[in-house]
Write a protein that binds this DNA or RNA. Structure first.
Lengths: 152, 152
DNA sequence: AGTGAAAGATTATCGGA
DNA sequence: TCCGATAATCTTTCACT
């Protein structure tokens, strides 16, 4: 947790939506010289508040039209099982998020695939890698929101 | 859905993990001149396969240590309700994802907040904006995976 | 925090495979 | 058509005020 002032927050708000802006433009928007901005951005990168700069791709254009959530109950509750699950999800590129949860739902997986057929392959692949006690999958019909921008 | 060759895919795989690389470096990694790479990247941007370049922030460092999923059943199944829900989730910056689902779970929300107290505020805010029939919330104890990189 | 200049990266144009 | 080279332009970085 860092101490960020109002200007830092404005910089972050802009950069997490569009990091292709030049320092010149960024400075203009927040009313600072490119240099003052440059120093702040640099500090934000060094402190790790800015973790990375990445390109966001369009899933539809890559033929990944279907988002799936899998609600999972574990077969066994052991460190070994958790490690296997973690490794399996890391190794499967269709899986974008994997979460250990509170409540009677043990684990939740968020994945992107081409279609229902591709999901079935993902499902079979997953159960071949880790023993799952109970899995219930839901498909996303509509994404009404999906962002990487955190509240600043 | 676009026709992408092997080299395009390699470029995308790299850029969606690190878009801070220079064209020089990128070209070196895939064995092309910076110029050839530049043309490909540009084409990928123009066709919309690359949707944006953004900065990814560290949620912990921003004091957003808690990820929450809210499973929701709608009060009414009308276009009007859906529109209200959509607007509410769009307007609430803590909500990162909102999905209309198949199955008896109607809607799913993914959000980031500081702590349980902040979640309670988010919850109250949400039910003040849209009528929800049934909400069940689960907290994330551990994120074993979380990526913006799609399989290419 | 801002200015100006050097270093570095990006984009446009052209000739060749 | 796609690649690579060269040159013009724009961006980032840094010393100085």
């Amino acid at each position: 947790m860092e101490k960020l002032d109002h200007i830092d927050r404005r910089i972050l708000a802009i950069l997490q939506r569009d990091a292709s802006l030049s320092l010149e433009d960024l400075g203009e928007r927040i009313g600072l010289s490119r240099n003052a901005v440059w120093r702040r951005v640099r500090a934000l990168e060094e402190s790790g508040v800015i973790r990375a700069r990445v390109a966001l791709l369009d899933p539809e254009k890559l033929g990944l039209g279907l988002t799936v959530f899998m609600m999972i109950r574990a077969e066994r509750h052991t460190p070994d099982w958790l490690e296997k699950f973690t490794r399996a999800t890391r190794d499967m590129p269709e899986i974008l998020g994997a979460y250990r949860m509170t409540g009677d739902l043990d684990y939740l997986i968020r994945a992107r695939v081409a279609d229902v057929k591709a999901f079935d392959r993902l499902y079979k692949d997953l159960i071949a890698r880790v023993e799952l006690h109970d899995v219930s999958s839901s498909f996303v019909m509509e994404e009404t929101k999906e962002t990487t921008a955190l509240p600043v």
